[in-house]
Structures are given as C-alpha cells and as structure tokens.
Computed example of a mutant assay.
Amino acid sequence: MKSNVSSVKRLGRNFAAALLHFVFASVGSAQDFPKHALTMVVPFSVGGGTDSIARDMAKLMSDRLGQPVVIENRGGAGGALGADFVAKAKADGHTLLFATSTFATNAAISLRLPYDPIKDFSPIAMIGRGPLLIVGSRQLGARTLSELITLGKTKPEGLNYCSAGEGSINHLAGELFSQKTGLSMTHVPFKGSGPATIELLAGRVDMFVATVPTILTHVHESKLPVLAVTGAKRSPLFPDVPTMAQAGVPGFEVTTWWGILAPARTSPQVIEMLNRVINDAASSETIKARLEREGADSIRMTSAGFTKELTHELKTWQAIAKTANLH
C-alpha cells in the first residue's frame, strides 16, 4: 500500500516538475526573444503594393524589437509557395508570413495545398483592411452598377470579368458578384493585376473587382468608371461612389486585408509579444498614412481576433467557391 502511495506521490512530483519546466521554458522563450534577425516572407514578387507595405512594417518592427526584420520574397502559386515555406519553418517566432486576403481565397479553391491554412499557422495580427472597387470598362458604357447589371442581363453571352489569377480576391469577389446578381459571367484570369488592368483599359474585358492601388491612377485620369465600393461604408477616396448595398446589391461586403502569421506551435508568449509590436507599428503615422492612400484603415487586433476573422473568412470563401463549382 505504501509503495502505491509513494508511486502516486512520485508521479505527482514529476508532473509538477514537468509543468514548471514548461512554464519557465515558455516564459524564458519570450524573455529571450528575439535571439537574432527575423525573416518576414512576402509570398509575392518584389515591388508590388504588398511588398512595399511589408517593408514599411519590417522597418518599424525592427526598431521596436532591436533586431533586423528581413523581407524575403517567395512568390508563386498565388502565394502558396511562400506560405508553405513559413508553415514548415521552425516555430520560434523568427520566421513570419506577411499575408493578404489571397491567403484565404487561394485556400478556398485549392484542395491540394501542402499546408492547412488554419492548423499550420498561428495568426498574430491583422494590420489593415479596405474595400475593393467595382470597375467597368469605358467601352461597356455602364455609368452605374444598375446599368452594368442591365447590360449583363441583355447580352446573350453575359459579361466577363478579369482577375489577378485563379484564387485571387478579384476572382472570388467576381464569383460572388455573379451569385448575388444572377448574371452569367465568364472569368478571365491574368498573371497579376497589371495585365488585367491593361485588358480592362483596352475594353477586351467588361469588369474588374479591383483593389484600390491597382486602379486608382486610371480612375483619377477618368479612364475607368468606379461603379461601387465593396465595403460597408463609402470610401473617403470616392465619397460620391455608392456601396454595393446603396447601389442595389445588398449582402455584398468584400474587403482586402493585410496580416502577419507565424508557424503553428509558436509560443503563446512570443505571439503575444509580436502582437504588441505589430499593433504598435500598424498604429504609427507611417502605416496609417500608407494604408489611407490604399483606401484602407489600420487595425488593432488580438491574435484570437485575427484567428476568428481568418476562420470565418475561409469558410465564407469556401462556400462561394463550392457554389461556383471551383473545387
């Protein structure tokens, strides 16, 4: 009997010691962090809007962490190559992913990704969010969203719309537009927003659900009409342009976002520390002004909040993709 009691006590002491070791190791990992330079992977090519915002964030994060934050561009497969690299990196907080809304939309149509967008990542913070724009070609002749919808219903072949590629935010937003309006629409994917915009300007495609920086210059030069914004409220950049609900298409709210994730199983203490640093950087005048030029707002968000948002958005896009038979 005494032997059994001693064994139980010994097991209890061992468990307590292991628990204390885990707690102190976790605290220690946060206190020692960062031990060296961080790598922030941008899953797109050098020079784009996402790359530029990431570099602004990296500089501000470096100032606050006391270690360099180095940008590494790993473009390809709609952002999947860069995301996969981070998913398989050491979970110590030194390798991060600078993601956009395409992280969710690409995962929504891709059933064979080498990673799980939820299980293989620890979301740290979303830094900004902004609407897209419904833009028609001048050759189409639609001056309002209702005119575009009417044209689409009267054309035997329906309308076509361009995107930056399969699985992009433009692609799935176009599919949602088709579902909400009942229009027959043909998707015309391109390798990036630049080529898509060129075809829209030439009138070879009818419509583009575009990000603000992609299209802003052409709108200011009156080369392309903006028919609606996809956010819940009007954009300060386009105060005279209605929201989708105001233009007659309720239930259509689509935003693009930027956020930072770490590999799954990264210490919660490190995630919390990085969350504070990222939120502080995103609240700086540098990032606020930069996002305002993109038609977006900076955001302060907890890791749990970002996880909830990402999970909800992925489910939403998966449902849209399923309805459109994109799987």
Rank of each mutant, 00 (worst) to 15 (best):
A17K: 14
E199A: 15
P156S: 09
K9A: 11
V41H: 07
R143C: 00
K35F: 07
A16E: 04
F24M: 13
G136C: 04
I299L: 13
F22Y: 13
K119E: 13
E285Y: 10
A107L: 00
S7D: 09
V209S: 06
N14I: 15
D297Q: 15
P117K: 01
A173T: 15
P123R: 06
H21L: 13
L201Q: 13
N106Q: 14
P225V: 07
T323F: 00
S6Q: 09
E292P: 01
A108Q: 01
H171M: 00
F15Q: 11
V135Y: 02
D240I: 00
V69P: 03
S6D: 05
I169D: 06
A58E: 12
G76P: 07
A296C: 06
P195E: 11
G66F: 05
E285C: 04
P195V: 12
V219H: 10
S284V: 03
T256F: 05
Q318W: 03
T323I: 10
G158T: 12
T217C: 02
Y161D: 03
A319F: 03
C162G: 15
D92I: 13
E175D: 07
T266H: 11
S122T: 15
K59T: 15
D32N: 14
R129T: 09
A80T: 04
G295L: 12
G182L: 06
G174K: 01
N106S: 05
K90L: 06
F252P: 03
Q246D: 14
V270L: 05
I118A: 01
L274P: 10
V41F: 04
L148D: 09
F306P: 00
L113D: 04
F24Y: 13
M273G: 04
M185L: 11
G158M: 05
K315V: 08
G47Y: 06
K59S: 12
A104F: 07
A281T: 11
A30R: 14
K191A: 09
K315M: 12
V249K: 08
S193K: 10
R55G: 01
G47M: 09
L200M: 06
A16I: 14
T286P: 00
L81F: 12
P189K: 07
V219M: 03
Y161G: 05
M1G: 14
I299P: 01
H171P: 00
S235W: 10
T214V: 14
G78W: 02
F98I: 11
G28V: 03
M40F: 05
L261H: 11
H36Y: 04
T230H: 03
A202D: 13
I287W: 05
A321W: 00
A37E: 15
G76F: 09
V277P: 03
H218W: 09
L227W: 04
